Amino acid sequence: MSYIHDFISFTRDQYKTKEFIPLHEPRFRGNEKQYLIETIESTFVSSVGRYVDQFEQKMEKFTGATKAVAVVNGTAALQVALRLVGVSAGDEVLTQALTFVATANAIIYNNASPVFLDVDLDTMGLSPKAVEVFLNEFGEIRDGVCYNKSTGKRIAACMPMHTFGFPVHLDEMIVVCKQWNIPLVEDAAESIGSFYKGQHTGTLGLVGGFSFNGNKTITSGGGGAIVSNTETLGVQAKYLTTTAKKPHAYEFFHDELGYNFRMPNLNAALACAQMEMLDSFLRDKRELAETYGLFFKNMGVNFRKETPDTKANYWLMCVELADKTERELFLKETNAAGVMTRPIWNLMYKLPMYQHYQRDAQRNAEFLEERIVNIPSSVR
């Protein structure tokens, strides 16, 4: 497969280096150092400081959300998002098995159970049709609440994940969730800068959660955000993630179980500087995606692109190879040459702690698991 060697040379030309090329590394080209120094000099390096407020405001402006709340990481954002819509012990959450483990972990942290349903081939995200088929077979409405007939448990939420920044089919998902009275929570961890019919991901469901880990499109080192267009949910998110402490000049009174999930001001300073660069980062990644698309088209390889009515951030770009054998060869030769590539995640139900949870046939997820490979996607 000579195209693999051509790809290695092509990628080195794109990044203008003969050194190791990582999958996705951060770029610090703006005010990062200045803001960090200002934060250190202010002594407000922990969970209180002006950059926390500024970052939340920047997230609200960029995504169009009514309320954004900065938190310590994306997993925490999802955990709290699920609690905000009422997920509690003994409930179930419909989600996808083709995802990063944080999606499933956030469900377990609420003492609920995941139900793994299939993805669509075009988006690689949770399929509205798979959700509909599952609910038609196992769903039951009792007093306005959806239950799983096979387990007797309440289906308390549906949480699709926008895989690699490609939005799922949200219109159809919203229709199915409304029909069955199931709250929609968006795992938007990978999709800052992605839009569905002009609306930012994370803002179409009741609540959305983002990640700003070191390998994301923009980073705060470690960090995340909860967004919602429902003011009361946003206010509650802030309250729960700041230990559920009642405001007071000096007393410490907490009236419910909260979390110390506050984003430190140091991380928020980094996030603010990165937000200022986000538009330029997205332009560069889109140009790189177009360049990759032409290259792989000439090689007869399927480079995954955004679907109609969406604008993807192309966080991690990927190719769909012919089969598992070709995937393994591609991974072996590229990594041996110092060009980092990686396979898509192992399906959740193949991990020891998630083997016993309910799932459907997963035909599309298994097809993609054997074929999808991420390629270098850093801003150049």
Rank of each mutant, 00 (worst) to 15 (best):
residue 212 F to P: 08
residue 174 I to C: 09
residue 156 A to Y: 09
residue 226 I to T: 02
residue 175 V to S: 12
residue 146 C to G: 08
residue 150 S to E: 15
residue 227 V to R: 05
residue 225 A to T: 06
residue 197 K to Q: 13
residue 175 V to A: 15
residue 230 T to G: 00
residue 199 Q to R: 15
residue 176 V to Y: 05
residue 208 G to P: 05
residue 183 P to G: 07
residue 206 L to K: 14
residue 156 A to F: 12
residue 210 F to G: 12
residue 223 G to K: 03
residue 162 H to Q: 01
residue 194 S to P: 01
residue 239 Y to K: 08
residue 212 F to A: 13
residue 234 G to E: 08
residue 185 V to S: 04
residue 148 N to Y: 02
residue 224 G to E: 05
residue 185 V to L: 02
residue 187 D to Q: 02
residue 238 K to V: 00
residue 231 E to T: 15
residue 198 G to N: 09
residue 238 K to C: 07
residue 232 T to I: 14
residue 177 C to R: 11
residue 212 F to C: 07
residue 193 G to T: 14
residue 188 A to I: 02
residue 218 I to K: 09
residue 181 N to R: 13
residue 218 I to Q: 11
residue 167 P to A: 02
residue 235 V to C: 02
residue 156 A to C: 02
residue 233 L to H: 07
residue 233 L to V: 09
residue 195 F to S: 01
residue 230 T to R: 14
residue 242 T to P: 00
residue 164 F to W: 11
residue 185 V to E: 04
residue 215 N to I: 14
residue 155 I to F: 03
residue 182 I to V: 11
residue 172 E to I: 01
residue 186 E to K: 01
residue 223 G to W: 03
residue 228 S to D: 03
residue 227 V to L: 02
residue 205 G to M: 09
residue 190 E to T: 10
residue 166 F to C: 00
residue 234 G to M: 11
residue 226 I to D: 03
residue 206 L to G: 02
residue 152 G to P: 01
residue 208 G to H: 02
residue 210 F to W: 06
residue 164 F to M: 12
residue 184 L to R: 07
residue 149 K to G: 03
residue 237 A to V: 05
residue 218 I to Y: 04
residue 195 F to Q: 02
residue 208 G to D: 03
residue 215 N to H: 14
residue 207 V to N: 06
residue 163 T to G: 00
residue 200 H to R: 10
residue 240 L to E: 00
residue 182 I to Y: 08
residue 145 V to G: 09
residue 235 V to T: 13
residue 230 T to I: 15
residue 223 G to L: 05
residue 228 S to V: 10
residue 163 T to F: 15
residue 227 V to E: 03
residue 238 K to Y: 12
residue 242 T to M: 01
residue 177 C to H: 07
residue 167 P to W: 11
residue 180 W to A: 05
residue 193 G to L: 05
residue 205 G to Q: 08
residue 215 N to W: 11
residue 190 E to H: 12
residue 205 G to S: 09
residue 189 A to D: 04
residue 150 S to H: 09
residue 150 S to M: 13
residue 195 F to G: 00
residue 182 I to G: 06
residue 176 V to A: 10
residue 219 T to R: 04
residue 186 E to H: 07
residue 218 I to N: 08
residue 181 N to F: 00
residue 210 F to E: 07
residue 222 G to C: 13
residue 240 L to G: 09
residue 237 A to K: 02
residue 157 A to L: 03
residue 179 Q to M: 13
residue 176 V to P: 06
residue 220 S to K: 06
residue 219 T to A: 14
residue 238 K to I: 00
residue 211 S to T: 04
residue 175 V to C: 04
residue 160 P to Y: 06
residue 172 E to K: 15
residue 178 K to Y: 06
residue 147 Y to W: 11
residue 222 G to L: 14
residue 227 V to I: 14
residue 181 N to M: 11
residue 205 G to D: 02
residue 185 V to A: 01
residue 189 A to I: 00
residue 144 G to H: 09
residue 169 H to S: 03
residue 184 L to P: 07
residue 179 Q to Y: 11
residue 165 G to N: 06
residue 163 T to Y: 13
residue 225 A to G: 02
residue 193 G to P: 12
residue 151 T to K: 11
residue 224 G to M: 00
residue 231 E to D: 12
residue 148 N to H: 04
residue 226 I to C: 10
residue 195 F to E: 12
residue 213 N to Y: 15
